[in-house]
């Protein structure tokens, strides 16, 4: 039974490999698939080994991956379960409108 679960926002990833390299349980690998910018995002190859430590999430320079601990039923533990569903990372992306001006 996995103790953690990973979420990946594929379109943010730039395939640096930090998450793959520093996952202590070797849960991740870069896939051969492309995202729309041409990068190979990681995917989970050993879900059963994930501890939910979120080190992958801490290392990611692109805020593209994160993980959470899950209860025995596989539900995300306290921190994320408390959040309204609409605030999920993936959905924030979809709702986002492009920034107008202001950026330098």
């Amino acid at each position: 039974m996995p103790k953690g679960r990973v979420s990946i926002v594929v379109e943010r990833c730039k395939a640096c490999g930090f998450c793959v390299e520093f996952c202590p349980s070797h849960v991740l690998a870069l896939s051969s698939a492309f995202n729309s910018k041409g990068y190979h995002p990681p995917h989970v190859v050993h879900p059963e080994k994930c501890s939910g430590c979120d080190l992958c999430g801490m290392y990611c320079p692109d805020f593209a991956i994160c993980a959470t601990k899950v209860d025995p039923a596989g539900h995300p533990a306290a921190r994320t379960a408390a959040q309204p569903a609409g605030q999920a990372a993936g959905q924030t992306m979809k709702k986002a409108t492009p920034a107008k001006g202001g950026s330098k």
Binding site: R5, I8, S31, H43, G90, P98
Partner: peptide, 27 residues
């Protein structure tokens, strides 16, 4: 590098704890 992108694992009900600190629309 493994072959397929295992999209079953992509989980959108997990919230990145740093999201509230970021201007997500610029990422």
């Amino acid at each position: 590098m493994s072959d397929i992108l295992n999209t079953d694992i992509l989980d959108t009900d997990i919230v990145n704890p740093v999201e509230p600190i970021l201007r997500s629309d610029r990422i």
